[in-house]
């Protein structure tokens, strides 16, 4: 199955990535080859098979009390932010 340039553009937009034209061409080719390989799954009879979402026993659920804990400070939470004002993370203007 061919992966069109439009598909690559749509997927890139969804993934919040952008590529140069030459990257797109090389990438499209590799992408197609890999997707083609993924199609091997079509040969397997999966009638009546339930998807496996976790290998752990589905009956084990994990609950805890919803308690407020003070685990980190504002200073720590902001310590890795590229831009902040001491209270909030700063980003470029979102609303014009």
């Amino acid at each position: 199955m061919a992966v069109s340039k439009e598909t690559i553009n749509t997927i890139a937009q969804l993934a919040r990535l952008e590529f140069r034209e030459e990257e797109k061409a090389r990438f499209g080719q590799q992408f197609e080859q890999i997707i083609e390989y993924f199609n091997a799954l079509e040969a397997i009879n999966l009638d009546g098979v339930e998807p496996l979402k976790t290998i752990l026993d589905a009956d084990i659920n994990v609950f805890r009390e919803d308690e407020v804990k003070r685990e980190i400070t504002t200073v720590e939470a902001l310590s890795n932010a590229p831009k902040h004002n001491g209270v909030f993370f700063k980003v470029p203007k979102v609303i014009g």
């Binding site: 993934a15 990535l17 990438f27 993924f38 999966l46 098979v49 339930e50």
Partner: peptide, 30 residues
């Protein structure tokens, strides 16, 4: 990393989700 994010976004995208992702989860059960 970009290649894998793109592949993952593709197999989860509308129209391909069942063909790839759901199918892979079923094979995982087998």
């Amino acid at each position: 990393v970009k290649r894998r994010i793109m592949l993952g976004t593709y197999v989860l995208s509308s129209g391909y989700y069942d063909a790839y992702y759901t199918k892979a989860l079923k094979v995982r059960r087998l």
